[in-house]
Amino acid sequence: MFEARLAQGALLKKVVEAIKDLIEDANFDCNNSGFSLQAMDSSHVSLVALSLRADGFEHYRCDRNISMGMKLANLSKILKCAGNDDAITMKSEDNGDTITFMFESPNQERLSEFDLKLMDIDSEHLGIPEAEYDATVKVPSSEFQRIVKDLASIGDTVEISVTKDAVKFSTSGDIGSANIMCRQNKSVDKPEESTEIDINEPVALTFALRYLNSFAKATPLSPHVVLKLSKDLPVVVEYHIPDVGRLGFYLAPK
């Protein structure tokens, strides 16, 4: 059987809210090392990869590797019924056709159980090679969210260019053009506001803003987002979930 208890249930709510508009349904794979998901959006332009480590859960048990197919909209409906401070326990039998979500309020006064029907989902698993990137940029996630939102009101695509000292986001459209530059700033006093650039080679790539805006829905998961860029390769937009795992988005360049 599979059983996992997440003390900070809000994390699971935030993960599902971050991906539910991008992917319709997906298999959640559980094994000894943790809980993961890999899925492409319906246009096959981007890929979502979630991994929550077993040790990030308060309690984790997985006797056999299982894959649980769920419709994200339905999972979201159920998780919206959990309080933000609730602990969430997920349970499923090895050959079960449902997954049970148990929500416990902090003082354990309220205990609720919701069963979600599982479904068979055909999904293609892609191998993501380990790569060394030309540039890695760490920016406050709220800043990234604001940039891609602001630029989407001007154009459809953004050119992200990284040099040693700064990362520049540029777009243009019918009404004009815009560019936003973020300088490297390793703020010691306020680490959550720091912008850090690690560069092997300057790089400039163009991406659809629509997808980057969708990825930015993961902002509540982490104070920073990490962008990894290499010439002619998909960008990785990565949110580290403190002590638990990561949510990564891969987007093919234009």
């Binding site: 096959h44 332009v45 293609e124 698993h125 090679p129 390769l233 987007l251 093919a252 360049p253 234009k254």
Partner: peptide, 14 residues
Amino acid sequence: LAGQRSIAAFFSAK
């Protein structure tokens, strides 16, 4: 989505 490449073109199927 004109000119947009597929992500599957970059990563091989497992």
